[in-house]
Simulated scan of single mutants.
Amino acid sequence: MKFKRILLKLSGEALMGEQKYGIDPAVVNMIADQVKAIRELGVEVGLVIGGGNIFRGVAGATKGMDRTTADHMGMLATMINALALQDALEHKNVHTRTLSGLEMPKVAESYIRRRATRHLEKGRVVIFGAGTGNPYFSTDTAAALRGNEICAEVVMKATNVDGIYTADPKKDPTATRFDRICFQDVLEKGLRVMDASAIALCMENRLPILVFDMNKPGNLVAAVKGEPVGTLVS
């Protein structure tokens, strides 16, 4: 394996499938199958998931809701997704722990870095819910933060396109894909890979980001093996 410990970042929208909102059990099971496959190869997996399929804090704030309240609602949405994915993994006999950035002891363990690392060392998949536990920070930033804290070798950002393009390939047929790109170019070109704070945090700590299409079966396994999948930001 090229990578022995990864931080996988999933968007909440990825769980919707063809629905307009909510969770599609078939999609959750597909994701769980791919995570199980890399666990069986010995890869240690931390996972951060968004909540946009249920509620987006920024969207709520733009409609007049207090931003802090909206972000807390978004964090709770990520916990719903985290528990759904935990359940799917455990039904496939993959030992999983959900750690929350917000204290909710009857639902999940509170996030403690050493505890998370110990779970990974024991071969458990660790799902980090509730973002960073603070408003004004996206789940992209949470992925960058948790990835650095657990000493992951890469942040893998799962998307519905096969990498980073010069423009949106669904809108611009002339858009070209990058195989590799540096952090500075991502920021200067305004490429919407992750938000700027997440990119800056990874750049400062030299934590590479791999952007790839997880909807294609086998892509996650190929990525951890170091095969040319997606776009590497380093």
Rank of each mutant, 00 (worst) to 15 (best):
F178G: 00
G147R: 01
V125N: 02
A88S: 15
V94P: 04
L220K: 03
N53W: 01
V126S: 00
L8V: 02
K36L: 12
I164N: 00
V233M: 01
V94R: 04
T139L: 06
A26D: 13
I31R: 09
K4R: 15
V35A: 05
H72W: 14
P228H: 08
L76G: 11
E13A: 03
A200G: 10
V28Q: 04
D213N: 14
I23S: 01
G51A: 04
K157F: 02
P173R: 09
I209N: 01
A32Q: 14
A26S: 13
M30W: 11
T231N: 03
Q19G: 13
G60S: 10
A61K: 04
M65N: 10
A223N: 04
K9N: 09
H119F: 14
K9E: 07
K171A: 14
T166L: 09
V94M: 08
L102P: 04
A142K: 02
M65H: 13
T117D: 11
K122Q: 15
Y136A: 11
A82C: 08
R39C: 14
D33C: 12
G52F: 02
D172I: 12
K189W: 10
C182N: 15
A196E: 12
V48K: 06
L201W: 08
T139N: 11
K63E: 12
T78Q: 03
Q34V: 11
V221L: 13
I127N: 02
L102Y: 07
D71H: 03
G190V: 10
V43D: 03
V27S: 08
A152T: 01
M194Y: 05
C151H: 14
V229W: 00
V161P: 00
R118T: 15
H72L: 14
E188T: 14
G42E: 10
H72T: 11
C182F: 12
E103N: 13
E204M: 09
D168E: 03
G129W: 06
V155P: 02
M79W: 03
G51T: 03
G42S: 12
T96R: 09
D185T: 13
G230V: 06
A77G: 07
P228G: 06
M73N: 07
V48R: 04
N53S: 03
V193C: 10
K106T: 15
H72N: 14
S100C: 15
R39K: 12
K92G: 10
R177D: 10
Y165H: 08
L47P: 01
L210P: 02
R192A: 12
L207M: 15
R56W: 06
L207V: 05
L76T: 11
D179T: 15
A82N: 03
D87T: 07
L7A: 05
A88C: 13
A142S: 10
L201N: 09
R113Y: 09
G74C: 11
R113K: 14
K92W: 12
D87P: 04
E103Q: 12
N93G: 11
R146L: 04
K157N: 09
V48M: 09
T68V: 15
E40N: 13
G22E: 07
D195R: 02
N93F: 14
D213K: 03
K36A: 14
K216P: 05
G230E: 05
P217M: 10
A175W: 04
L83K: 01
P228N: 09
L145C: 07
A167T: 09
I23M: 00
H95A: 15
I199M: 04
V211F: 05
